[in-house]
Simulated assay, not measured.
Amino acid sequence: MLTKKQKQQSAMILDQIYANGPIARVELSRKLGITPATLTEITHYLLDRKVIYEVGEDTDDYHVGRKKILLDITPQYAYFLGIEFYHNFFSMCITDNKGTVFAQQVVEFSPEELNVNFTWTRILNTLASFREQHAQFTLTSIGFSLPGFLDSENKVLVTDHPFWNSLNLTDFENAVDLPVYFAPLTNSLAIAQRIFSTETAIDDFIFLHIRNKIVTAYMKDGQLVENQTPYVAELGHTTSNPQGEVCSCGKRGCLHTYSSEEAILRKSKMIYEVSANSFFHNIVKDQSQIDMNAFIKAYRLGDDATMTIIKNAMKYLAITLENLTMMIDINHIYVHGTLFNTPEFTDILNNSLAENSSPYRKLHRLNYTLVPYKQINGAISACAHSVRETIIHGF
């Protein structure tokens, strides 16, 4: 058995192997400040339990003498089920402990059908059917990516959406036969970026998620900074234009009123109603059918109003990103949302970032990566959160 101190060190070691593996023991010792003797003892413990394995010799090591043996995470060591809740769908997937997806399902419905379709009975029945179809996978735990701040003590969501606020997570927890781990969606996405990504790991970054809400998660020294106060990560309700329109929160000119999908679609529906010349009339039969796909089509057809909407959305997002990195010492920002699956929109963001860049950027360039959006991303990220709880912090 590991001591309490060794368990903490084990979590550090596993995190590093996830983030930077395959990696040699000497490199782990140097990065983490753990003595070679202690590190050897802990890695032997993890090897015995087959959560990690020895890959082989480091072929890039050209030094004379004994070759370094690399360590990596054992794939298919355990399996996890992840779920994301959203206002017009819920998604499920099964991954192994390295993020490989073996099964997935997305259940869609209109926002108006939320109260009818999204009930614990519906979720449990769908979940039971999904698990039965994929019974060959022995699940370790269930992870949830949630659309709001989690009050972990009372197991309830804290959000401005009235439906989600009425959702008691304990009801679900008591109805299933596996450990359940809940986390705000953006936190889960940041964890997945850290441990499931094939890219070189970055220790300090912000993960920015944009859909109907604009929220962030902050990774510092490879560890998630978990907020204890509701709305502290709600970047959408920071002021971008003090003379702007009134936001639902009561302030003027919040980023949410320009760059969120909710704001973009609300303005698009207004255009449909007031402008007979809008290209939306050629795309949909009535304003209730306007979604992001319709918005993109109107933009590509040359609709002037949609061009103005997206230019403002990217301009104020660029200003916010610039301000954010002037206040927080980070190496990178990951930006995730359906908007950025459209190349024309990402070009506008790049141009806006260049136009609004601080003169100090000559010394320190803003680095950011656009993460492609898929409906299943939140469910995969929920699995990452479960991996963090049951494997990285589980020994």
Rank of each mutant, 00 (worst) to 15 (best):
T325I: 12
S141Q: 01
D61Q: 07
S152E: 11
I330W: 04
E112W: 00
K67L: 10
Y218L: 12
H134R: 02
V156A: 10
I214V: 12
L14W: 04
V101F: 02
L39P: 03
Y360I: 14
V371Q: 09
G302E: 07
S260E: 02
P75I: 05
Y360Q: 11
Q223F: 10
G148N: 00
H332D: 06
C93F: 00
M307C: 10
L321C: 13
F340M: 04
K98L: 13
G378N: 06
N282P: 02
Y62A: 14
V64K: 10
E226Q: 15
M327T: 15
E226L: 12
E41M: 13
M292C: 08
F130I: 06
N165A: 11
Q76N: 14
D347R: 07
N241G: 06
L189E: 02
V107T: 13
E84P: 01
L224R: 04
I42K: 01
P111V: 06
R300D: 12
D303W: 02
S240V: 13
D286A: 10
E389L: 15
G378D: 08
D151V: 01
F280L: 14
L150V: 08
Y18K: 00
F207P: 00
A78N: 02
L146Q: 02
V176S: 09
D221V: 05
P75T: 07
G148V: 09
N241V: 02
L81I: 13
E199L: 11
Y316F: 15
E234N: 15
I52Q: 04
S357G: 11
R211W: 07
S91E: 00
H281L: 11
I191K: 07
E355K: 11
E262P: 05
L14M: 09
N341W: 04
K31M: 08
T170Q: 13
K267I: 09
K155Y: 03
Q76W: 00
F109Q: 03
I52M: 09
L169K: 04
E344F: 05
I206S: 02
V107R: 06
L81S: 08
F205P: 00
G99F: 01
H161N: 08
Y77V: 00
I290E: 03
I206K: 02
S358F: 06
Q228P: 03
E173G: 05
G99K: 01
W120P: 03
P242V: 15
L339V: 01
S10W: 01
H209S: 13
K98T: 15
L235F: 07
P184H: 09
I290N: 04
D177A: 13
I23G: 07
H336W: 05
P184L: 11
Q289T: 05
T346Y: 05
D171Y: 09
